[in-house]
Design a protein around this nucleic acid. Structure first.
Length: 274
DNA sequence: AACGAGTCCTGATCGC
DNA sequence: TGCGATCAGGACTCGT
């Protein structure tokens, strides 16, 4: 499932190949993944546009276009965005195919269809909440003071639930929430209000560390994740807790516990995380 | 207001 | 071997 490191990897992969490329035509578009505008408007607005510099905002991929619009893609759980030769066979569940002037195609595929495609001026998309408000990004310099918000730090919510809230921290999902809590030695069930300032600081740096390490490994290959060229990442081998319920904690050797928090499977060490 | 629960969706995996 | 049940979860909607 693509979280910040996977999306960042894809963006870095695709950025140099898309920059200055002209979008010749929309070869195909499945309206079910399109949130805005209508399919007809999308085709009209996209054709002929030239790609600017690809960027990431949380888990969203932003492609600024010469028309002033942003082509925005969220990969949901199973989405992939890849640059392929036009002669490559089109895989099932490919919902968007964009013909580029390089002869290649930008293909968006998403079997589970939790992802979405949006096109429009950035200000309008933000105003209409098609792009939801986003908290600080663990890769940003300004993240040092995180969370720096009294409403967050005084909350009665479980800290695991807080990490999954995109308004609190942009780009964190279930995998890296568990990994960061493990690295910071904090129990996911702890309420936000129970964390001391130094524990928040520990958690903040843990988020940055696990994200950067996963990017170094080109993302976690779990489920359907592929990088911008369709290859797997290798961060899965380095996960300490996610997907390892019942297996020994790499720190103390005791079996890891699993519990549902905020509707998500959460894995942690009862001994090491307090 | 804030939080939990239900919802969408398909593929992998499991048990019989 | 085959098939139905179960599980995975990001972000939205709805109800408490």
């Amino acid at each position: 499932m693509p979280e910040l490191p996977e999306v960042e990897t894809i963006v870095r992969d695709l950025r140099p190949h898309l920059r200055e490329r002209r979008l010749e035509a929309v070869i195909s578009l499945n309206p079910v993944v399109l949130r805005f505008p209508s399919a007809d408007s999308f085709r009209g607005a996209a054709a002929g546009a030239v790609f600017g510099i690809l960027a990431r905002r949380g888990k969203f991929i932003h492609a600024p276009l010469s028309t002033g619009d942003h082509l925005v893609i969220h990969l949901g759980m199973t989405g992939t965005l890849t640059l392929e030769d036009g002669s490559e066979p089109v895989r099932p569940h490919t919902h968007l195919r964009l013909q580029l002037d390089s002869g290649q195609e930008l293909r968006y595929r998403d079997p589970r269809r939790f992802g979405r495609v949006i096109l429009g001026p950035l200000a309008q998309l933000t105003r209409s909440r098609l792009l939801p408000p986003m908290g600080p990004d663990p890769l940003d310099r300004a993240f040092a003071g995180w969370p720096g918000n009294g409403r967050v730090t005084s909350s009665a919510r479980a800290v695991k639930a807080v990490l999954l809230d995109q308004e609190v921290v942009a780009g964190c999902g279930n995998i890296y929430a568990d990994e960061a809590l493990y690295l910071a030695r904090l129990r996911p069930t702890r309420t936000a209000a129970s964390l001391s300032a130094s524990q928040w600081a520990r958690l903040g740096s843990a988020l940055t560390v696990v994200m950067k390490e996963a990017i170094r490994r080109r993302g976690t290959s779990f489920s359907d994740y592929r990088d911008g060229f369709g290859a797997r990442g290798e961060a899965y081998e380095s996960l300490m807790v996610y997907g390892r319920a019942g297996l020994p904690c790499v720190r103390c050797g005791r079996p890891l516990a699993a519990q549902r928090i905020a509707g998500r499977t959460t894995v942690y060490c009862r001994w090491c995380q307090r």
